[in-house]
Design a binder for these strands. Structure first.
Length: 170
DNA sequence: ACAAAGATCCGT
DNA sequence: CGGATCTTTGTA
């Protein structure tokens, strides 16, 4: 079942732990529905978080993060890779969760490539789920909390354990 | 207007 | 470790 508003409109710290192991669903170029288990996420939360794009305030780019949870935030990094984020929290609380990896796909750039993301996904509604959505899962495995990747410039904010990674079960 | 940096990945 | 490659943002 598709996750609804209630799931996303909570604090990013709660949603991030809860989103692991759910299924990221999308339609491929032939219209076939694909899905993969979410295994690796990172939290970007609030204007005070120096690693969060919203630390610059509300801009054309960060606008969607200020909206109510359940929307897609995508942006191009290094001129090449589209990063997939889900907006969380209530309106006025800039938050997003970066999908760093799904089963068999290790790395946010690869996730974006797999889903063939582009600018048109900015602000896409995950609750409506026309092109992309998330479905719930039953099993809840354990996860580890790690520092976020690639945000050393953010000083003490880089030390927060805001990367949640599913522990692989053999 | 222009320059700089960036939530990455790949090949050497 | 450097190159690819382009949007966003700060500075003039």
């Amino acid at each position: 079942m598709k996750l609804g508003h209630g799931f996303y409109e909570r604090d990013a710290l709660i949603v991030a732990a809860d989103i692991l192991e759910n299924k990221l669903c999308w339609k491929d170029e032939s219209g076939m529905v694909q899905n993969k288990v979410i295994t690796d996420v990172e939290i970007y939360r609030g204007e005070e978080d120096k690693a969060c794009h919203a630390c610059k305030g509300k801009t054309k780019r960060t606008n969607v993060m200020y909206m109510s949870g359940g929307l897609v935030y995508v942006y191009l990094i290094y001129g090449m890779y589209w990063m997939l984020n889900t907006v969380t929290g209530r309106e006025g609380e800039p938050q997003a969760i970066l999908i760093r990896g799904v089963e068999g796909v290790d790395g946010p750039g690869k996730v974006g490539k797999l889903l063939k993301l582009d600018k048109s996904f900015y602000g896409e509604d995950l609750v409506k789920g026309e092109r992309i959505w998330i479905e719930d899962a039953v099993r809840k495995g354990d996860y580890e909390e790690l520092p976020r990747v690639g945000v050393d410039y953010a000083g003490e904010w880089a030390e927060r354990l805001w990367r949640f990674n599913l522990i692989k079960v053999k």
